[in-house]
Amino acid sequence: MPILEIKNISKAYGSHRVFDGLTLDVEEHQVVCLIGASGCGKSTLLRCINGLEPIGSGEILIHSDRVSGPGVDVNALRRDVGIVFQSYNLFPHMTVMENITLAPRKVLNQPAREAEVQARHLLERIGLGQKANVYPDSLSGGQQQRVAIVRALAMGPMIMLLDEITSALDPELVSEVLNIVRDLAADGMTMVLATHEMGFAREVATKVCFLAEGKVYEEGPPEQIFSEPQGERTQAFLKRIVAAGRL
């Protein structure tokens, strides 16, 4: 029984069809990596799951409960589904601590003390315990992205969506962020990642989905997709990745 079901969704921006009958199931504790060319809809798919963007037709279910379309309590949906963005999007006018505790206090009505204890615990866990009271602009990109992950985790989500979270980072900062994702995967967090880090996808994913033509063009375990891709477009895509020295 999948925790997340995306059933035959379609979406278009004007005449550009982003999704054309896309279907995807995510089981609990699965780590699903979305790969594909720029503009193939990886990020859009994550934003649709989270209700940040509407879908044209089809439906998205979580625990067999429809979470797309009119009448859905998107605020409730987003409590269960956390998302981390490529550009971190920390709140620049708040300290790290305030960034993390804002949503638990205002949305879950946690008492301030309780939220702070939890936030401090999470920060210690990712090695940023001393940074609780600084503002985001004094952190490196890698540190900001780790805080953004913790900010999403503080809401206790069931599913985490990670939208190219290392694409804006300097190369030497990528590993500190990926290590957290590894830990989350090991702890059994259900995750959907849009990523350009093919090596990482190969290592951490339980399922890799190649998006093309508005569909999941090909999916399978990472060894199969990366070593013996079946589809013509998957093969062409991976060939270009190899030529760019990224795999």
């Binding site: 934003r47 989270n50 940040l52 998107v74 605020n75 409730a76 987003r78 409590r79 956390g82 998302i83 963005f85 550009s87 999007n89 920390l90 709140f91 804002l102 949503a103 205002k106 949305v107 900010r151 999403a152 809401m155």
Partner: peptide
């Protein structure tokens, strides 16, 4: 993106 971040946290 600030709106997206805040709304995605359930605010």
């Amino acid at each position: 993106s600030q709106v997206a971040a805040a709304r995605s946290l359930g605010l």
